[in-house]
């Protein structure tokens, strides 16, 4: 691997996805701010993690990049070795080409696979629909190549998906998403439904495929321990906004935003002697139709000050490549470290 800095594959500039919530008789209808002014650079060939609680807007952000959610404001720029496009401005032909470059790996492989198609047909479908291959031979060759990379053999290709276990089905969905040879994939909770015994296998497969095929992966997950293991960059999302982003190692060693610290702290430790030690976050994520003013995390932040309730924290770089939106990041950092304090009782 080269040591030169990676160019940016996808960049988001002030991206918002807002939904109008029904109609009201008086005044303007409330707006759901699912994604709210996100700016983010996803480096080429990175395994880029996006984490946050349910409803924080992760799926919506991923879908917006794939042009599957309506962009209300901002800009999405996609660049690879061949093209540079403004995703929001693509015309029909441009969109067709874009769909071969950027793909989604489905969250739930059970729901995503049609029971009446053989595995071969499932993997071949996107190639045929997008008219990527010219002949049946070419299609078959592509299917066999990607299937082999996903450790599916010829025997598997003839069968129907119901005959497969969860891990195998997930490999089928990955093969399907990669058949068109995309450069950028969004993997939305791709291992959430899997048992831990096979989850590791799929994560290792994604890592290998990234190397072999030069992919950039936007990996959406609510499981921080998984993200810590596979991603080289992580963005933490809260209520439609990114509150912290940075290289995973640095972010895990020293979170700079209280929400990142709280998310870590909430992971149940495998050490029974850690009981009751974790720092807990009170309350639940507010509705995206009613985003709190000032710092959007202030209603749950254990370190909230008056200033947080009115003033939106600036987005700033607090360590190399590590950005955060918190007024008091510097002072709070020592209190957010995950390094376990020595047990006074021990």
């Amino acid at each position: 691997m080269s040591t030169a800095p990676h160019p940016i594959h996808v960049s988001l500039d002030g991206l918002s996805v807002h939904y109008a919530l029904g109609r009201t008789l008086f005044g303007t209808p409330p707006t759901v701010r699912a994604v709210d002014g996100v700016s983010l650079d996803i480096p080429r060939n990175s395994f880029f993690g996006l984490v946050g609680e349910s409803g924080s807007g992760k799926t919506t952000l991923g879908r917006a990049i794939l042009r599957a959610a309506p962009v209300s404001a901002g800009r999405i720029t996609y660049r690879d070795a061949e093209v540079e496009v403004d995703v929001g401005a693509l015309d029909k032909a441009g969109l067709r080409d874009y769909r071969t470059r950027a793909q989604l790996i489905f969250q739930d492989p059970y729901a995503a696979l049609s029971p009446r198609m053989t595995v071969r047909d499932i993997i071949a479908e996107p190639l045929e629909v997008m008219k990527i291959t010219k002949s049946r031979e070419e299609t078959d060759e592509r299917v066999r190549d990607i299937a082999a990379r996903c450790r599916l053999n010829l025997e598997h290709l003839r069968r129907f998906p119901h005959a497969f276990s969860g891990g195998q089905r997930q490999r089928i969905s990955i093969a399907r998403a990669l058949a068109a040879r995309p450069r950028f994939v969004v993997a939305d909770e791709s291992v959430a439904a899997l048992d831990v015994s096979i989850q590791a296998d799929i994560l290792n497969l994604l890592k290998t495929l990234r190397e072999e095929l030069g992919l950039t992966i936007l990996f959406i997950s609510h499981d921080l321990s998984v993200v810590a293991h596979v991603c080289d960059m992580v963005a933490v999302m809260y209520l439609g906004a990114i509150v912290e982003v940075g290289p995973s190692r640095r972010l895990f060693a020293q979170p700079r935003h209280p929400y990142t610290g709280a998310l870590f702290s909430a992971i149940p430790s495998l050490d029974p002697d850690d009981r009751g030690r974790a720092q807990r976050l009170e309350g639940e994520i507010p509705s995206p139709a009613n985003v709190p003013p000032g710092c959007r995390f202030h209603t749950r932040c254990p370190f909230v000050q008056d200033r947080c309730r009115s003033e939106v924290p600036a987005w700033r770089e607090v360590a190399p490549q590590q950005h955060v939106a918190c007024h008091f990041s510097e002072e709070l950092a020592p209190r957010l470290t995950r390094t376990r304090q020595p047990d006074p009782a021990a």
Partner: peptide, 21 residues
């Protein structure tokens, strides 16, 4: 236990349980 990602040691390799259920 080996297949579990451990947040306290993110550099440890993930070792899946061989085969499928």
């Amino acid at each position: 236990l080996n297949a579990l990602p451990n947040v306290n040691d993110p550099d440890a390799p993930l070792t899946p349980v061989a085969g499928d259920i």
